[in-house]
Simulated scan of single mutants.
Amino acid sequence: MIITNVNLVLKDEIVKGSVEVVDGVIRSMSNTSSQLPQAIDGNNGFLMPGLIELHTDNLEKYFAPRPKVDWPPLSAMKAHDTQLIGAGITTVLNALSLGDHRGELRHEILDSQIDTVVQSQKNGTNRVDHRLHLRCEVPHDTTVGIFERYINTPGVQLVSLMDHAPGQRQFVNIEKYRTYYQGKYGYNDAEMAEFEAMQRAFSERWSAPNREDICGQCRERNIPMASHDDATLAHVTESKDLGMVIAEFPTTLEAAKASRDLGLHVLMGAPNVIRGGSHSGNIAAHELASIGALDILSSDYYPVSLLDAVFNLANDSRNSLTLSDAVKLATFNPAQSLQLFDRGVIEEGKRADLLLAQYKHGQAYIDGVWREGIKVF
């Protein structure tokens, strides 16, 4: 397969030319156009590596599309997979939450989600390469037991540790916390006060020992770990000491800089880029990009945001990112952080996971997606 008349978005430059794929692998690149009649005309679009998504909780929206409504697993998986490939994502870590969810449907469907991801990947029915990211809510007595139930599941690629107790990390602003959870659960003020007190008590009792236990088990298995919502130098130092390699959504400039200084890859949300800031009132991703403290983008809860954020950052005069630099945030850098050295870059010998996009009227539009050289969108 040859794709020609494209702008090849390479790791450090953009070259007008062609790429040749053989047996699912990039065999060669050229800075000239192919004259072969079977070559695919890219219409002067941007050909870049397929996007790599490390943290999306989008899957559960298909398994539970409405409160108290579950959906047939394979149908849900098919819809989720279709949305991801349509967003240009060719490798995804499905982030599934482990811990106490007060009877939420997301807890009830956890088995089904994990089994479906594993089985559909095994059966070859997915167009995206699906893997698992275990999100461990550490301030609960049930978390370690649930973690141990799933840690040896095939495809577990990343484990993150989070504590959403009020008054710290993501929810330093207590009013933001109340707005979020009262909207989510429909609590009145008295119920919300009870919920806050309970979450603080759980955090004080369980967060530290669970964090130590889970991180120890991950280190034994050489599974990469991510911190979540670090806000202070103390948080970041603890994360580094525990063996974290990724700092997910640091909430302050101090935490982001410290993470970078200690060698953690800083991950921020693509929706944060598109919306111009955090919905929780924390640090804006574009601020980190402007000082070179942003390594990885994640679509989080909105898959199409990933490609849009790449072009948004590349066109933002507040930073010095080129398009090649911005593309690496969603391709090369996440691949490197997980030691997926076979993908994430257009180079000879790498997987032909490719994305062809046009940029017009301030938006990115996808013309084609290939996974291991096979067109899947």
Rank of each mutant, 00 (worst) to 15 (best):
L242F: 01
A76L: 02
M225R: 06
Y180N: 02
R149E: 08
L297T: 03
V369K: 12
I274L: 03
S30L: 00
A201N: 09
M77V: 10
A201E: 11
A314S: 15
V19E: 10
Q339N: 13
A193Y: 05
E220W: 08
S112K: 11
T153M: 15
V25E: 09
L10K: 01
A165V: 03
R318C: 04
S290N: 03
L264Y: 00
E347W: 01
Q336L: 03
A293R: 14
R219E: 14
A256K: 02
V304C: 04
L10F: 00
K61Q: 06
L93K: 01
I85A: 15
Q182N: 09
R106F: 12
V128H: 01
Y150C: 11
L355N: 03
I346L: 14
I346V: 04
M225Y: 05
G373N: 01
E175K: 05
L329P: 01
V266W: 05
A335N: 07
S203N: 09
T82V: 05
G269I: 10
E148Q: 02
D41P: 06
D213I: 06
E20I: 13
R127V: 02
I274E: 00
L264I: 00
F46Y: 11
V19H: 12
F341H: 07
L105G: 02
L54Y: 01
R371K: 11
N282D: 00
L253F: 03
H265Y: 10
C215A: 15
L36W: 11
Y180F: 08
Q358L: 04
M48W: 01
C136A: 02
Y185G: 08
N319R: 09
E248L: 01
K375N: 14
S320D: 13
A270E: 13
K375T: 12
A95S: 03
E348P: 05
T82S: 12
N333F: 02
E191C: 05
V310C: 07
V19Y: 14
G362V: 09
R260K: 14
H286T: 14
G86I: 15
N7L: 13
S30T: 01
F202W: 09
R102S: 08
F311E: 08
G50Q: 01
H55P: 05
L297H: 05
R131G: 00
F63A: 05
H265V: 04
N58K: 04
G167R: 10
N272P: 07
E196L: 07
R221Q: 13
D115A: 14
R102D: 13
S120D: 10
D12H: 12
F332G: 07
H107P: 08
V273Q: 12
E108V: 11
L297K: 03
A255D: 07
N272D: 08
T251W: 00
G277S: 12
L267I: 08
D316F: 08
E20A: 12
P166N: 13
A335V: 01
L134I: 13
G281L: 00
E175Q: 09
T56R: 03
S160W: 13
A270D: 13
R351Q: 15
G145Y: 07
E191F: 03
R27V: 09
L96A: 04
D81T: 13
F171I: 00
N272H: 05
Q168S: 15
E212W: 07
V156L: 15
I89M: 15
Q168L: 15
Y301S: 05
R149W: 04
R343N: 03
